[in-house]
């Protein structure tokens, strides 16, 4: 009830854009292979359901696997950098250089090494989020307020416990924005991978539909990607909020 109340302005906005789109197509008489109307996209969606869900399943697995691996390894790298000072001088420059490599250019090489299966796409999705997650987490871990560090020192904390019980929780808000960003970037990695070379997945389906001038099917595939991207963003957000029950915007709601 209240959810509907909060969502209706957004729904109204989306519906009016769709309405405008439909009117535009009808009025201008633009051919369906250039811009299909929302209604014909829905028709394509309904008639190709099985095909779409099959490819969507593949892409979703790639995205979720990439997201998990990227976030875990990014967080692990950040923790290691914060814990072991000696690592910084070795690892930070490598991280920076690796970030300068354009991932688009890397995709064909990954296909060459890992083949046309899912692995290459998972690696793409992982790579595209690994560095941003590692760097936001590391920044968060370094920006612990001095007062808390002073307290930890006078309380006799060792480095490991200080990192896990003070620096890590203090970095959670920064970490959360890193994760949210990763959630919206991971689909890009997977779809790029599918474009460069594959026989399955929504990216492949879109490329194939494009070649066959099935633009309505392309839009239907895009619709799934967008819906999943939004769902992934909100899921990540919900998980991060659950991890931070003390956070300001939660307190007011629960007490």
């Amino acid at each position: 009830m209240s959810v509907l109340k909060r969502l209706w302005p957004a729904l109204l906005g989306i519906l009016s854009i769709l309405g405008l789109w439909q009117v535009l197509v009808v009025v201008t008489g633009v051919p369906g292979y250039v811009l299909p109307s929302p209604l014909s996209v829905m028709q394509a969606f309904a008639s190709h359901q099985q095909l779409l869900w099959h490819h969507a399943g593949i892409t979703v697995i790639e995205i979720v696997a990439g997201l998990l691996i990227g976030c875990i390894s990014g967080l692990g790298t950040a923790l290691a950098l914060a814990r072991f000072h000696g690592l910084r001088r070795t690892l930070l420059p490598i991280l920076l250089i690796s970030q300068a490599v354009p991932l688009f250019a890397l995709a064909p090489i990954l296909m060459l090494w890992l083949g046309y299966g899912m692995t290459a796409k998972i690696v793409m999705a992982t790579l595209i989020i690994y560095f941003p997650v590692a760097s936001t987490c590391y920044d968060g871990l370094r920006q612990t307020p001095q007062g808390w560090l002073d307290l930890a020192q006078t309380l006799g904390a060792d480095r490991r416990r200080r990192l896990l019980r003070i620096q890590l929780p203090a970095a959670l808000p920064a970490l959360a924005s890193g994760m949210r960003m990763a959630a919206s970037a991971a689909p890009i990695g997977a779809v790029i991978g599918e474009w460069v070379g594959s026989s399955q997945g929504l990216g492949y389906l879109m490329l194939d539909a494009n070649a066959r001038m099935q633009v309505d099917l392309m839009f239907a595939a895009l619709l799934i990607l967008v819906t999943f991207g939004v769902a992934l963003y909100f899921t990540t957000d919900a998980v991060m909020r659950r991890l931070m029950p003390w956070h300001e915007d939660r307190i007011g709601a629960t007490s």
Binding site: W148, L151, L155, R161, R165, P169, A170, L172
Partner: peptide
């Protein structure tokens, strides 16, 4: 006080850090 620790756990911060 650490916002992610309940009041009692803030009092217990010393032992928790050791």
């Amino acid at each position: 006080l650490l916002p992610w620790r309940k009041v009692i756990d803030n009092v217990l911060l010393g032992p928790a850090l050791r």
